[in-house]
Amino acid sequence: MAGFRSGRGRDSGSAQGRQYPQQQYPYGQQQPPYGQQPAPGAWPQAGQGQYPGPPQPPGGPGQPEYFGPPQGGDPYANNPGHTQSFSVQDPYGQGGYHDGPPEPPPGPRLSWKELLSGVVLRPNRTFWQMRDYPVWGPALLVTFLYGLLAVFGFDKAREDAINTTISSAIPYVLTTGIAMVIAGLLLGVVTHTLARQLGGVGSWAPTVGLSMLIMSLTDAPRLVFALFLGGDASLVQLLGWLTWIASGFLFTSMVSRSHDLPWLKALGASAIQLLALLFLIKLGTF
């Protein structure tokens, strides 16, 4: 019987710890004297009734078995009782089944200051972060204040408000502010309904609130110049068109992120609100 080398392939360092295999010879042959090599063919070969012994470690003679497999692959891989190592590719990394890293989840709710500045300076990030939070407070207040000043952005309405008494002008101005709030609510509901019809999944409260903020904030530059120059001035008309285009971009971005819609569908959902703002406010027919 063939023996095993002790110490997982290492010498024990002493002759006493070494165990030598018992050499067997064919019947009728004697063991050669001490110090002489056996004759060729004296050692038993595999397949002649003798157990050939365990395979040598993959690291080679004199190396422990836990050394890595030799070059060219693991000889034990995919054999019964053995497994083959494999690597797992990051699905969000380069070459995965995703185009790029996933977008971060919505963050904490923004304060009203961060919300107002974010709509103008960081619209994409702000709309994504606030897609699940209603913004009724800032939306109603900003739209109401915008409605109070919108009276003075139209020539005829401004003349009527200036030429009348204060007791008559205050209800007139307040009514205009309330009318702007109601108009913003209705237009936001229309935008949300169209987005849901096109496959959107957003909530109605964030959509309506953010649409009211977009409507009010984007028209602020035109309104400031209209207070002094009048609504029919060329600069005011130019600002009206430029701010209307900017509002279209913001509406599309907001609907796209709030409802997980592509840009074309998001633009289609915002089309009615954009046309209403153009004819009712931008062109001075309100």
Results as ranks from 00 to 15, higher is better:
residue 191 T to L: 14
residue 147 G to A: 06
residue 44 P to K: 10
residue 278 L to R: 13
residue 95 G to N: 10
residue 222 R to P: 02
residue 41 G to D: 09
residue 105 P to N: 06
residue 82 H to W: 15
residue 206 P to M: 07
residue 204 W to T: 08
residue 234 S to F: 11
residue 210 L to D: 02
residue 254 M to Q: 13
residue 178 I to P: 04
residue 30 Q to S: 15
residue 282 K to H: 15
residue 129 Q to K: 01
residue 179 A to F: 06
residue 97 Y to D: 13
residue 239 L to W: 00
residue 247 S to V: 03
residue 225 F to S: 05
residue 265 K to M: 04
residue 110 L to F: 12
residue 27 Y to W: 14
residue 33 P to E: 13
residue 54 P to A: 06
residue 216 S to Y: 03
residue 32 P to V: 13
residue 221 P to R: 09
residue 117 S to V: 14
residue 33 P to A: 11
residue 264 L to E: 07
residue 4 F to N: 01
residue 282 K to R: 15
residue 139 A to P: 09
residue 87 S to Q: 12
residue 148 L to C: 12
residue 204 W to R: 10
residue 214 I to V: 09
residue 135 V to T: 07
residue 4 F to A: 07
residue 223 L to E: 06
residue 123 P to G: 14
residue 159 E to F: 09
residue 286 F to C: 13
residue 74 D to K: 01
residue 18 R to L: 12
residue 240 G to K: 14
residue 16 Q to I: 01
residue 179 A to N: 13
residue 21 P to M: 10
residue 141 L to H: 04
residue 220 A to L: 15
residue 7 G to P: 00
residue 180 M to N: 13
residue 98 H to E: 02
residue 99 D to R: 13
residue 223 L to F: 14
residue 83 T to D: 06
residue 254 M to F: 07
residue 117 S to N: 15
residue 6 S to V: 07
residue 195 A to P: 06
residue 135 V to A: 06
residue 133 Y to H: 13
residue 194 L to Y: 09
residue 209 G to H: 09
residue 22 Q to E: 03
residue 53 G to T: 00
residue 6 S to G: 11
residue 77 A to V: 07
residue 76 Y to Q: 03
residue 83 T to H: 09
residue 200 G to F: 04
residue 140 L to E: 00
residue 77 A to C: 05
residue 282 K to A: 15
residue 212 M to L: 02
residue 44 P to H: 11
residue 103 E to R: 15
residue 150 A to I: 11
residue 174 L to P: 04
residue 154 F to E: 12
residue 13 G to C: 02
residue 256 S to D: 03
residue 259 H to L: 02
residue 93 G to S: 08
residue 28 G to D: 07
residue 155 D to C: 03
residue 58 P to A: 00
residue 166 I to N: 01
residue 267 L to W: 07
residue 203 S to P: 00
residue 49 G to T: 01
residue 52 P to L: 05
residue 165 T to N: 14
residue 55 P to I: 02
residue 126 T to N: 11
residue 266 A to F: 12
residue 35 G to M: 07
residue 184 G to T: 08
residue 85 S to G: 15
residue 124 N to K: 10
residue 56 Q to N: 03
residue 269 A to L: 11
residue 88 V to G: 00
residue 238 L to R: 13
residue 7 G to N: 12
residue 10 R to H: 11
residue 217 L to P: 00
residue 56 Q to W: 05
residue 203 S to A: 14
residue 148 L to D: 06
residue 115 L to W: 10
residue 192 H to P: 00
residue 225 F to P: 00
residue 198 L to Q: 06
residue 278 L to D: 08
residue 283 L to D: 09
residue 272 I to P: 04
residue 27 Y to K: 14
residue 227 L to M: 13
residue 187 L to T: 11
residue 161 A to R: 04
residue 88 V to D: 00
residue 165 T to D: 13
residue 74 D to E: 01
residue 270 S to L: 07
residue 232 D to A: 08
residue 261 L to F: 01
residue 97 Y to M: 10
residue 233 A to Q: 05
residue 151 V to N: 05
residue 90 D to L: 10
residue 258 S to D: 06
residue 141 L to N: 03
residue 26 P to W: 09
residue 81 G to V: 02
residue 109 R to K: 12
residue 5 R to G: 09
residue 269 A to W: 10
residue 2 A to T: 12
residue 219 D to Y: 14
residue 59 G to L: 03
